[in-house]
């Protein structure tokens, strides 16, 4: 009886692994995300160590480390980490979401496909729903994800009234 149930579980487990493998996953450990103030060109930070996964069913995740953001000015980078984003207390930002119109993307055909993305963004320990329009560009079967969308930093408990209220998040991730 016991052995029979173990066999059943194993079979189910194996079957579900089979199903996961039937889906195609694209990943990168070094995608790019830029935080930019729309009102001040100098307030710009680049992160080139974004881990992201894109499944051909539309599931999309991004994770990055706040301490990986580089500013041109070292002093600005210090303020960003210590005063505004408290990156020692909240080292990571995560997004999990979906491409809602994934059916319109043909992963096997080169081209540029407009997409709508919705999901949850966790930044500075606060999770908020976000929505963005973006583009998936397929080149030789490899996708590139691009998007540009604003967030109100107050929504994430970040107060920097002297610096900026809005931050534009620019995503540019080439998958393998």
């Amino acid at each position: 009886m016991k052995i029979a149930s173990i066999v059943t579980y194993l079979t189910i487990a194996l079957l579900s692994i089979g199903q996961v493998e039937a889906q195609k996953t694209f990943g990168t450990r070094n995608g790019q995300i830029i935080f930019q103030s729309p009102s001040d060109e100098d307030v710009k930070a680049i992160n080139n160590e974004v881990s992201s996964r894109l499944l051909d069913n539309g599931t999309l995740t991004f994770s990055l480390l706040i301490k990986g953001f580089k500013f041109k000015m070292a002093e600005m980078q210090d303020h960003f980490n210590t005063q505004y984003l408290q990156s020692t207390q909240f080292p990571r930002a995560d997004f999990t979401g979906n491409i809602t119109n994934i059916k319109s993307v043909n992963f096997t055909k080169d081209g540029s496909y407009p997409v709508q993305v919705t999901g949850n963004l966790t930044l500075h320990g606060v999770t908020q729903k976000v929505a963005a329009n973006g583009t998936i560009v397929i080149t030789k079967g490899k996708p590139l994800a691009k998007a540009n969308f604003p967030i109100q930093i107050k929504d994430f408990g970040v107060n920097a009234p002297d610096v900026t209220e809005k931050v534009t998040i620019a995503v540019n991730c080439q998958y393998q």
């Binding site: 994770s63 480390l65 990986g68 990571r92």
Partner: peptide
């Protein structure tokens, strides 16, 4: 290098 942190199931990042 400088360690910037950990992304579970993916990597520890150093730059």
């Amino acid at each position: 290098g400088i360690c910037t942190g950990y992304i579970p199931d993916a990597n520890v990042v150093i730059n």
